[in-house]
Design a protein around this nucleic acid. Structure first.
Lengths: 334, 334
DNA sequence: CTGAAAGCGCTTACAG
DNA sequence: CTGAAAGCGCTTACAG
């Protein structure tokens, strides 16, 4: 059925030009007369031509594909991150291949350099600092690498200032009467997947409270994994420690949502008996009227993609870093 | 830093053979003398040679990569499925590239045939019947395709007999005294992600109950999305309809887990006041002593991979189907 | 601005 | 069983 894909030869023949010229318009080379370019583009259109990335790569050019290594893809955070990456990459006609890591074994496989993940033009590493996995803390590749939602002095890094976000949260809640509580999201037990963002948020939060002179005893901190259920349990725990009004900072919106739901179920009024502040700025926060520290996830993705594009073109320069600031989104007073 | 990868030329030179011979050992061609093969393999080893998939593909051979299109990868089900696929694929020295679909837009992009996903040697489609997305219900590719956890007459399909699984569940619970309830997992509202497995399980369950002469009024069915929370809510709902002992069939282990937890929290004895039966046979079921209808997920993956391997080698044959049967795992009586 | 040639790293007939 | 040659679909100097 379906015919063999047309190649650059057919396009050249149809447009009445040489192979080199077709290749030049494909690569946006400036030295092509506008009319010629138009003619070639038309031929490609008519033929339904689409370049073969393998051939492009083998010929020493680019494959126009970028690999994204990330822990998994089923959360709101990664959905937004991918959206940000895709936005700028697609515009430059780059495709992206996702490589969810999921497990140590898989990570190892990806990092064998014969793997497809390494044969693309560049790498985005999300949420991981892979230093400990390799000697000298360098990936076994000579392709450009950009970290996002993680940082490492050897590579370009784009990340959120989570400490600052925690400070914002602390400064805000310190203004209200009532005891102050916080829910910290647990880190993964597996070292390969260890992250520090949640700890940083809590550190900033603690510091702001201290500066404001508000007490924050150890048992006002509840630790749980990332789930709504965690928020529910936390609130019940807090209510044994103090009576309303309560102020609760949750290290992630998903957890905050659980707090909010449990409060409602217990007949407590959110924003009055229980004041909840989340972190992430996920779309659903606005829907349910949850105040939250917004994280510019899409912007992080976009910035990382831009950095990578620059690296893929330019001559080597020392790695840079880019810390984005959290912003603020406060739900309507309930 | 890191040197350029060695090529087949260096290997040939070092082993003192021609290019063709190196290629032959690479492709397991039988017509190579054992000593020659050994010599070449040693040279590859010493050089740290690793073949370039792009070049292999471009040269008309295989890229030794298989694409797996799947909804997302963060659940237990897909972890097991990937494990099953990898097991047989890695053995044949095939690599697999995962393409989580996540959204309609992304699905469309993957299906433009210029995309990396299509330039591999074969496709595994998990959980989707993509008929409605294309004219004539065929994917725009001439590479072999195998569906897993889904079925379509035009392609090889490997799936579980969910109806039978439901029947097993019904026949089992019908033996016990007390009212019978069931929890059905909601289908995705998005048509692209629509699945029928949960409905099939319930249909089988209902039929078995009917045959056993056990009543199953409409309001004994609770519908929820796939979450533990759903199980909790369901149990509370059921307890308003009837008093213990209760028998509950949950369409997925994760939901069953919620039922179990809520029962314990309410001071009810699992296996006595509330008998819970799950579906999936996830590893954690055994840990918590949850009875469940086991789904051979790894086996499904393995079978699908085998079928694909066959298709990638052999001449076209009409598509086949392979329905695996659920098995039974009953937890220790609590 | 454009064409013809050499080459990317491999595979696959074709001759021995 | 093995080598030398042609070719996969493209890019990139090199000459005009």
């Amino acid at each position: 059925m379906r015919k063999k894909q047309p190649t650059i030869h057919e396009v050249a023949a149809r447009a009445g030009v040489g192979l080199g010229t077709v290749s030049r318009v494909l690569n946006n080379h400036p030295a092509v007369r506008p009319e010629t370019r138009a003619r070639v583009l038309r031929a490609m259109e008519e033929l339904g031509y689409t370049p073969n990335p393998h051939a492009r790569r083998i010929a020493g050019g680019r494959s126009y594909t970028v690999s994204v290594l990330l822990p998994f893809v089923a959360t709101e955070f990664y959905r937004r991150l991918i959206e940000g990456l895709e936005g700028v990459l697609l515009e430059k006609r780059y495709d992206l291949a996702l490589f969810p890591i999921l497990s140590q074994a898989r990570l190892k496989r990806y990092l064998e350099s014969s793997t497809l993940a390494y044969l693309t033009d560049g790498l985005i590493l999300a949420s991981y600092d892979l230093t400990e996995h390799f000697e000298e803390g360098r990936l076994p590749t000579d392709r450009p690498v950009v970290l996002v939602d993680a940082q490492n002095p050897r590579y370009d890094s784009v990340y959120l200032d989570n400490f600052l976000g925690g400070r914002l949260a602390g400064a805000y809640l310190a203004r209200f009467p009532g005891a102050i509580f916080a829910i910290k999201v647990e880190e993964e037990p597996d070292r390969a997947f260890r992250r520090t963002v949640f700890a940083e948020r809590m550190a900033g939060f603690g510091e702001a409270l201290k500066e404001a002179g508000r007490p924050f005893p150890e048992d006002h901190l509840y630790v749980t994994r990332l789930s709504q259920e965690g928020g529910r349990l936390a609130l019940r725990h807090f209510l044994e420690k103090a009576s309303p009004p309560l102020n609760v900072f949750a290290g992630a919106d998903q957890v905050a949502l659980g707090v909010l739901e449990e409060a409602q179920r217990l007949g407590l009024t959110p924003g009055k008996d229980v004041r909840v502040l989340g972190f992430d700025g996920h779309p659903f926060a606005e829907e349910v009227g949850l105040s939250t520290i917004a994280q510019p996830v899409e912007a992080m993705g976009a910035r990382a993609a831009q950095l990578l594009l620059e690296r893929m073109q330019a001559t080597p320069e020392p790695p840079g870093r880019c810390a984005l600031s959290p912003s603020w989104w406060k739900g309507p007073p309930p």
